[in-house]
Design a protein around this nucleic acid. Structure first.
Lengths: 233, 233
DNA sequence: GCGTCTGCTGTAACTCTGTTACAGCTGACG
DNA sequence: CGTCAGCTGTAACAGAGTTACAGCAGACGC
C-alpha cells in the first residue's frame, strides 16, 4: 500500500496548488503525479484527463469566490460596487481567469455575481430586455477588463511604447495628454471610472434599436463513454 | 537546389495561411515545414523560433488592418464609430485576437485606432488626464469585448445555462427579463449599446478621484545572443 | 581552375507533453 | 482460502519545440 490511498480531493488540491503557484499551463500530468509521489495513471484514474481536471478546478475555485453583497445608496452605486468587488476577487485568483479563458468558460466567472446584478438592476427600475441588457453589459465589462489586465501584466512592456508615432503632434498641442498616455495604466482607477460611466450611461438613456437574432446553434459534444472510473459520475 | 530558395517572406505567408485556416495553436513547426515542402530547420533558420514567428505574424496582421476613419456628427458618435469599426475589423481577424492574447500583446491591437481616438477625444473638448482616461477606457472596452466574444464563441453552450438557480424568483417577478437572459447574447447589439453608454457617461461627468501610481517596474528581457541567423536583426 | 567560406537545407536526435494498454498489488467479502 | 473491485505502476505511443551536426550550392579570392 506504500502510501495512504490517493483521493480525488487530494489530486484536485495538489493541482490547485500547482496552478496557484505557476499558472495552469505549468500544470502537467507528470508534474502533478511527481508532486503527489504517485504515477500518472493514478491521476488519470481519479480525474479522467487534463480537460476534466481543469473543469473541476474552475468549478472549485468559482465556489470559493462566494456570493457578493452590494454596497451603496443608489442602485447605480450598488451595481458599480458589485462590479468592483467581482473584479477584485477575480484578480485575486489570476489562475482562475487563465483557466476560464483557456477553456472558453467566461460565463462561469459570473455565477457569484449574476444574482446580485439582476436584483440591483431591477431595483433601479429596469424591466425586461433593458434590464437584461444592463446585466450583460456589466458582465462583459468586468470580464473584459479582467482579461485585458491579466493579459498586459503578462507582457511587461515588451516594446516601450516605441516612439508613439501619433505623439508627434499631440505632444505639442497637449503635452499633459501625451504624458498621461505615456504613463503606465492604473487599472484599478481606470476600471472604477469606466464602470461608473457605463452604468450612468446605461441607466440614463432609453436603450438602443433592434433586437438580437440568435447566433447559431452550436454543436453539442456528446459524453464519450469511458469504461470504469470515478471521474465519470 | 531542389527548389527556389526559401525566403522569410514565404515562411511568414505560409504561416499566416495556416493560422487563418485553423488558428494559431494549429500552427506547428513541422506542419509549416511540410506545407512548404522543406525541413523544420529551414524554418528555424528564417524565423528563429515559434515565439518570433508569432510576433512577426502579429505585426504583419496589425499592419494589414489599416487606419480607421471616424464617421458621425458629434464627437461622441465619432468615438463610438471608431470603437465599432475597430471591433468589427478585429473580429474579422479572429486569429489575430488569439495570437495577441496568447502572447500578451493587447496593446498591439490598437495601433490603427489610437490616433483616431486621441483626435476625437480632443475634438470633444477634453484635455490632459481626462482625455487620456477616455482613450484608454474605450480601448479597454473594445479589447475586452473582443476577447470575451472570441472566448464564448469557442465554447458553444457547454452547460445549457443549467437551471439558472437565480431564475426561480426572477422568472416569476419579471418573465421577460428571465427570457431575455436565457436567450443567447447578440454581441453586436450589446457592444453598440455598451460603447454608447460608456462614451456618454465619460463625456458627461467631471471625472473621478485620485491619480494612478505606477504599477511596478517589470523586468526587461535582454536579447539572448544567438549566433548567426537573419531573424536576429 | 582551385580552395575556402557563407548561406541555407536535411537527417536524426533530445526532451517534454497528454494519453493508454496492461500487468500487478491490496484489501474486503463470500 | 478464493475472487473480485479498486487502485497503482511500468512502459510505451504519437506529436510538440528545438538543436547538434553534416552536407550542398554558389560566390569570392587567388
Amino acid at each position: 500500500m506504500a502510501r495512504a490511498a490517493l483521493t480525488r480531493e487530494e489530486v484536485l488540491a495538489a493541482a490547485a496548488d500547482l496552478v496557484r503557484r505557476d499558472g495552469p499551463q505549468s500544470l502537467t500530468m507528470r508534474g502533478l503525479a511527481a508532486e503527489l509521489g504517485t504515477a500518472v495513471t493514478s491521476i488519470y484514474w481519479h480525474v479522467g484527463n487534463r480537460e476534466s481536471l481543469l473543469d473541476a478546478l474552475v468549478e472549485r475555485t468559482v465556489a470559493e469566490l462566494g456570493a457578493i453583497r452590494p454596497a451603496g445608496r443608489t442602485p447605480a452605486a450598488r451595481i458599480v460596487s458589485v462590479a468592483v468587488t467581482l473584479r477584485r476577487r477575480l484578480l485575486d485568483h489570476p489562475h482562475l481567469v487563465a483557466m476560464v479563458h483557456e477553456r472558453g468558460l467566461t460565463e462561469r466567472m459570473f455565477l457569484p455575481a449574476r444574482r446580485a446584478l439582476v436584483h440591483e438592476v431591477r431595483a433601479a427600475g429596469l424591466r425586461g430586455t433593458r434590464a437584461a441588457d444592463v446585466v450583460r453589459a456589466v458582465q462583459f465589462q468586468v470580464a473584459g477588463h479582467v482579461l485585458v489586465e491579466r493579459d498586459r501584466e503578462r507582457a511587461p512592456a515588451r516594446h516601450p511604447v516605441e516612439e508613439e508615432p501619433w505623439g508627434a503632434r499631440t505632444a505639442r498641442e497637449d503635452p499633459a495628454l501625451a504624458r498621461a498616455l505615456a504613463r503606465p495604466v492604473a487599472p484599478e482607477r481606470l476600471f472604477a471610472l469606466s464602470v461608473k460611466a457605463l452604468v450612468a450611461g446605461l441607466l440614463a438613456e432609453p436603450a438602443g434599436e433592434g433586437r438580437g437574432r440568435p447566433s447559431g446553434p452550436g454543436r453539442e459534444s456528446g459524453a464519450n463513454g469511458v469504461s470504469r472510473a470515478p471521474y465519470s459520475h
